[in-house]
């Protein structure tokens, strides 16, 4: 499977101490994406300008991807991901995102922290989109369950219902994103309709599997009462939902967006201020929704 990163001791990807596996590739292309380097299903070369010591060791590249014109510049489309520049770079300014790992290898990485998981913590498969490589994720979570490791899937829900059905027996909890309840906006900002997403959420609930609903808050896009009202409606109908986590938009993904050579789509006004966040929390709590405060 193509993995963007495996991070240990993750704080906010489900209960307890967790190791999060970030899968490469996502069917949604959210304008505000916090992990833009995980969107594409292909490998990517990241360049962190602030770490570069201009030693030019990267010019080992046979395809001449790296050149210096006062600044260190890249000709990314020539890159064949051979990794030579990365292994030469002494300052960790270069990184290839996307590592081909076997299910067993990923499992072994997760297993390293098994003694910290206790009964609560475990693995969280995230991304990108966890379900974009469901054929590998399925044996992975199965293997974890067999070893007594708790499993969580963090998903945008945009997948075939049958795929979700096949995973459900091995998943303890879904961290389920609802980007926007307005389908017109959903299409505009993520590239796809939310219809399938909302349908799948109810499907998971019908199979008595626990969920935490995670909602991004983007000022000027979905930060309005109508959307929150809809979220409350949906969550109230779920029988196995543990609560809602609100994730106010932030700009931190921009570092990696820049490193991956993408153009910024971000708008300053997307940031929510504290009063807005508090108002959203109060609004949902008044509707009887449990808000999980972790971030």
């Amino acid at each position: 499977m193509l993995v963007a990163d495996i991070q240990r001791f993750c704080m906010h990807d489900g209960p307890g101490v967790r190791t999060t596996v970030f899968i490469k590739g996502c069917p949604l292309k959210c304008a505000w994406c916090h992990n833009p380097e995980t969107q594409s299903e292909e490998k990517e070369l990241l360049f962190y300008e602030n770490k570069c010591i201009s030693c030019s060791a990267c010019q080992v590249c046979e395809k001449n991807v790296h050149y210096f014109d006062e600044l260190h510049l890249l000709n990314r489309k020539e890159c064949v991901f051979c990794g030579k520049c990365v292994s030469k770079c002494p300052a960790k300014a270069l990184e290839i995102v996307g590592k081909e790992l076997s299910v067993e290898e990923v499992f072994q990485s997760v297993y390293r922290d098994v003694l910290f998981f206790d009964s609560l913590g475990g693995i969280t498969v995230s991304g990108g989109e966890a379900l974009s490589q469901w054929e590998e994720v399925l044996p992975l979570v199965k293997m974890c369950k067999e070893k007594g490791i708790s499993t969580a899937i963090e998903t945008c829900g945009y997948a075939e219902t049958d795929v979700i059905k096949s995973l459900v027996p091995y998943v303890d909890i879904f961290l389920y994103d609802i980007k926007d309840t307005d389908d017109v906006r959903h299409k505009k900002y993520t590239g796809v309709s939310n219809e399938k997403i909302i349908k799948n959420l109810f499907f998971i609930d019908s199979l008595c599997v626990k969920t935490i609903v995670r909602c991004i808050l983007v000022n000027g896009v979905n930060l309005n009462e109508k959307h929150l009202e809809n979220v409350a409606e949906i969550v109230k109908r779920l029988k196995h939902c543990e609560g809602v986590e609100l994730l106010p938009y932030h700009e931190f993904g921009e570092v990696k967006r820049r490193a991956s050579g993408r153009k910024s789509l971000a708008k300053k006004e997307w940031l929510c201020n504290e009063e807005q966040i508090k108002a959203a929390v109060d609004f949902l709590e008044n509707k009887g929704i449990r808000i999980i405060k972790n971030a």
């Binding site: 001791f9 704080m11 906010h12 209960p15 307890g16 101490v17 910290f116 998981f117 206790d118 609560l120 913590g121 999980i292 405060k293 972790n294 971030a295």
Partner: peptide, 13 residues
């Protein structure tokens, strides 16, 4: 280690 899960993180460690 903030929030509801922060305590669980410390306990896990």
């Amino acid at each position: 280690v903030k929030g509801e899960n922060g305590i669980e993180m410390i306990k896990g460690l």
